[in-house]
Amino acid sequence: MDAPGGERADLLDSLRKHRALFLGTVAGLSDEQARLTPTASELCLGGLVKHVAATEGEWARFVVDGPAPQPDVDWDSIDWSDPPQAVLDRQDEFRLLEHETLAGVVALYERTALATDDLVASVDLDARQPLPDAPWFEAGASWTARRVFLHLVAETSQHAGHADVLRESIDGRRSMG
């Protein structure tokens, strides 16, 4: 396939730039360092990579297939002392579990990114899908593929900032400055 131009090239360039900044925050870390939660939050670098990979994959599937079934969770009345399995699974998405490695989640993210890049290069950017029924989305709203890819740029960029703070807290290394 020829390299995309115009809008597609801009989307790909932005995604790749922010992915590189994000992945730069985990360069040279051990699995143990990638599991550290050095700030007031419960975020760790390995978990962030895992989350961003999962989220990008979910949005790419959304572009092609529309909304996935959502877990049956009443988000307003969760008993946090005994949350449902869907909530526990979501929490684990933000952790690098003992059986996982940083290299493994980085490889997953890189495969996911390549698949998304192929999608950006080929999909109708005006194709529209209804957003899932969830409390964080406007009821009845839909997004174009273009809007999804812009959201991925924003999501990746935001998490690159989180990751930068975590990395600086671990060993003082910063991606900029």
Rank of each mutant, 00 (worst) to 15 (best):
Q129T: 03
K50C: 02
G24M: 12
R16D: 14
L108Y: 14
R90L: 08
E138Y: 04
P69H: 02
D124I: 02
L29S: 02
R61M: 12
K50H: 05
F22K: 03
V165G: 07
S157M: 06
P38L: 01
E155L: 06
R61V: 12
R35H: 01
R146F: 02
H151W: 03
D76Q: 15
A9T: 12
M1R: 12
A103G: 03
T112A: 14
L166E: 01
R173N: 11
S77F: 11
D13W: 15
R174S: 10
H159W: 12
V26R: 05
R8Q: 15
E32I: 08
T101C: 02
E110D: 14
S122W: 15
P69T: 03
A86I: 01
D13L: 15
R111D: 08
M1F: 12
R173A: 12
Q158E: 06
A34F: 02
V123N: 08
D92W: 00
G140M: 06
G140S: 07
W143E: 02
G172D: 04
W80P: 08
T55D: 15
D92N: 02
D65W: 07
G5I: 10
E58C: 07
P84A: 11
H162P: 04
Q85E: 06
D72Q: 12
Q91N: 10
T116E: 15
H18I: 03
P132T: 10
L11V: 07
R173W: 06
P84I: 08
A20Q: 00
F94E: 15
R174H: 10
E58T: 07
V64P: 13
P135N: 13
P135E: 14
E138V: 11
L131A: 09
D74C: 11
S77Y: 09
L88G: 01
P83I: 06
P69L: 05
G28Y: 06
Q91T: 05
E138H: 09
D79Y: 08
V73T: 04
G5N: 12
A139H: 15
S142E: 08
G47A: 04
L119S: 11
D118V: 06
V165C: 09
I170W: 00
P71D: 13
V105S: 08
L125I: 14
T55H: 15
